[in-house]
């Protein structure tokens, strides 16, 4: 147990270090701007005096490292500053949107994870059968499709032709859960299709890989059924790579929502970051990037820790 705690602490420290470097990059990238935020706000017609005044207002005349630590401190306390475009508090902008994005990603994950595990195990069970080949081609195809293509196919079929689900997902903080689930169904399905393919292929590959090992051969020689071999002998050992790929896909999911949110006009973080990039609203883009990066790093960290826990051999690297 001691070794496990030590490992978790090590990974956490590493994650924090990564996060620190990432925040440094996000901050420094703005410093590399030709000119600075003050000039960006005032535009080209500004006089040098007004630029200098605004710079003093925003505290831009102080050295970069001091501003960095202040910025980091504010961020850590949940104060992201103000948007350049509409002067609103960014924290206020982020609140419901972050929740919406997490809801959508969680919704997709709840459908995708069991589905892809089942499909993957079945494909390994009936390897090289018609089912296996069919699923294989289908997943390869769906990996190749741009997200917006899948999204528009869904809209064309389910929202325009059959009118089962809305094409535009307008949820607010007051929308009740059942209505929210119904409205967000199409975007969740699109995301599911995008990540299921990858997870399913990895599950299948992980199990098939193990099937070649001697202890599986032993189990087979003992006369166990194929199903028992896969579920009781192969699956527990295949868990590490499977958990890893699930966590990685969840990390991808949080980022992959960007395009899907734009297609469905879903009020989430993805929409916000795209709008802000178009308007060059730098503080908002910084805040969103930091949140995305944080989620991504956390999920990767989780993947690391879980895969080590499920495979104790990894605790003692040679």
């Amino acid at each position: 147990m001691d070794a496990v705690l030590k490992m978790v602490a090590q990974r956490l420290a590493l994650g924090l270090l990564t996060l620190f470097v990432v925040s440094l990059i996000i901050f420094a990238s703005v410093e590399m701007l030709p000119g600075d935020v003050a000039e960006e706000i005032l535009g080209q017609s500004a006089t040098p005096e007004t630029v200098a005044a605004l710079r003093r207002d925003l505290g831009l005349d102080r050295p970069a490292h001091i501003r960095y630590f202040e910025w980091l401190g504010d961020m850590a306390q949940g104060d992201f500053g103000r948007s350049l475009a509409n002067k609103r508090e960014i924290t206020e902008l982020l609140g419901t949107r972050l929740w919406n994005t997490l809801f959508l990603a969680g919704y997709a994950a709840v459908i995708a994870v069991p589905l892809s595990l089942a499909l993957g195990i079945l494909a390994a069970l009936y390897r090289n059968s018609l089912y296996d080949r069919l699923v294989n081609s289908a997943t390869l195809t769906s990996i190749s499709f741009p997200e917006f293509f899948v999204a528009y196919i869904m809209i064309a079929i389910f929202a325009v032709s059959w009118r089962w689900f809305p094409a535009i997902v307008n949820v607010t903080a007051e929308t009740p859960l059942d209505e929210r689930l119904y409205k967000a169904f199409l975007p969740a399905i699109v995301l599911t299709m995008v990540i299921t393919a990858h997870m399913m292929r990895m599950t299948r590959a992980a199990i098939i890989n193990l099937m070649a090992s001697p202890y599986i051969e032993m189990a087979r020689l003992k006369g166990l059924t194929r199903r028992r071999i896969i579920l009781h002998h192969a699956l527990p050992n295949a868990l590490a790579p499977i958990i890893n790929v699930i966590a990685l896909n969840l990390a991808y999911l949080v980022v992959g929502v960007v395009v899907v949110e734009v297609v469905f006009v879903y009020p989430g973080l993805g929409q916000l970051i795209i709008d802000s990039v178009t308007k060059r609203d730098i503080p908002v883009v910084q805040a969103c990037s930091l949140i995305f990066a944080l989620t991504y790093i956390l999920l990767n960290l989780l993947a690391d820790i879980l895969s080590i826990l499920s495979n104790p051999r990894l605790l003692h690297p040679r």
């Binding site: 990390a251 980022v255 960007v258 990039v277 990037s289 991504y296």
Partner: peptide
Amino acid sequence: VDVLMAIPSLIFALLILTIVGT
């Protein structure tokens, strides 16, 4: 490379494109 890969690439691309312009 470790650091570059720690940030989701689409988000990183968006951040850089905001700054240098599209």
